[in-house]
Nucleic acid binder design. Structure first.
Lengths: 212, 212
DNA sequence: CTGTGTTCGTTGCTAAATGCAACTAAGGAG
DNA sequence: CTCCTTAGTTGCATTTAGCAACGAACACAG
């Protein structure tokens, strides 16, 4: 089996835009350049690909990543000069804006959030710009069919918060009444009876995701 | 890098149902049992995962497989007793019913088509029943959004043939007028002017897929 | 106490997409 | 010529999504 890596396209809505977590590589190849964070599979430690992804995420980013989904696998002989043939299994994830900050782990000089538009246009290492683009499309397709990342929101949230989050990921506004109709038609949310988000204006009903 | 395999969930509409191509394994593990056909990655031969998939398909099945799409990657330590850790990249494909018959290649005792319902219920080797199910869902999702496998039809085909093919893959009937409207709204087909499929009844206009 | 601004939540209407059923057209078989 | 079957279209009902407006609730300013 060739040299196998797990790589992560982790997104968050920060500063009003969709951002992706990038790592500046400490070692060759592409030392000093920005790339998706990742690490190598350890056959002595990992009980599955998904478990390997969690382990590497924890090691390199300082925190586990819930809601990881497999994006694709890519591989070839020129992928990484350290091995004659390298294979990467790429995962995508979405985390809350207020997540505990990640801390750069082994073989990473620095971690930074960058807006996806910049990241796709920037000369990321390897084919990582392509992977970011692919991951964004997959996330947006999920939201289009209301497969929503409830883990990225507070335990209880308002419909306004949910809609705003989706709009930031999608990159375009949604219709309020249509969004709410589609949610309630599918019984995707459970209202937390009697609980409201209070603030400067009219209080808003709080909801939880399904199977909560 | 661990022991890496390419595996194939290849489908065809045969005998009025959606069938999947299975191979009876000649060697351990699971010798004698039915499984998805596949083979190992060769780092000395393969320039990419997709190229590896084509090479293995040709070797094991006696023919290349157009329209292969990556389904997922799975891996773990107990996946294959021949190695301490095994990784499989799974591809899905759809081939014409009249495709040249596949011939069992290395390490395969026999090849057979089996209906997907049976295959999913049958005790296939490894987790292959799960993979078949996942591949079927992915194919159906493609057709739902009119991402159609034109390579599975003759060079030129009638709308009736196309619809019937889709119905067999989906497992349920489609509405004729709606199907045709959706196709023409999206400019997915090009009529072959003046060409008709003649037969026992009214001749039918022939079409080609896009970018043809 | 009263207006004003903002968000929340809902309603009514419009437009688009889809599903259903019927119809006509075209050919072969008898 | 009639009947049968498939091809292709049409009209209409139903569903779905988008758009705009409305009243409700609350904080704040005056």
């Amino acid at each position: 089996m060739p040299f196998t890596r797990l790589e992560f396209a982790v997104f968050a809505v920060r500063e009003g835009t969709l951002q992706v977590l990038l790592a500046r590589r400490a070692e060759a190849p592409h030392a000093g350049r920005w790339a998706l964070p990742g690490g190598v599979l350890r056959v002595d430690l990992d009980a599955s690909l998904d478990a390997a992804a969690q382990r590497v995420a924890t090691e390199r980013l300082g925190a586990p990543l819930p809601l990881l989904r497999q994006l694709c696998a890519v591989g070839g002989p020129q992928r990484d000069p350290r091995a004659p043939w390298a294979l990467s299994v790429v995962y995508r994830g979405l985390v809350p804006a207020d997540a505990p900050d990640f801390s750069a782990g082994k073989r990473i000089e620095a971690l930074a959030w960058r807006s996806v538009d910049e990241a796709i246009a920037a000369p990321l290492a390897f084919d990582h710009a392509t992977l970011v683009d692919k991951a964004v499309r997959a996330m947006r397709a999920d939201i289009d069919v209301l497969d929503l990342p409830f883990g990225c929101l507070p335990e209880a949230f308002t419909l306004g918060e949910l809609q705003s989050f989706c709009e930031h990921v999608l990159g375009h506004p949604l219709d309020k009444s249509s969004f709410r109709r589609r949610l309630s038609d599918r019984d995707l949310l459970v209202p937390v009876e009697g609980e409201f988000r209070v603030g400067a204006f009219r209080p808003a009903q709080l909801f939880r995701g399904p199977r909560a």
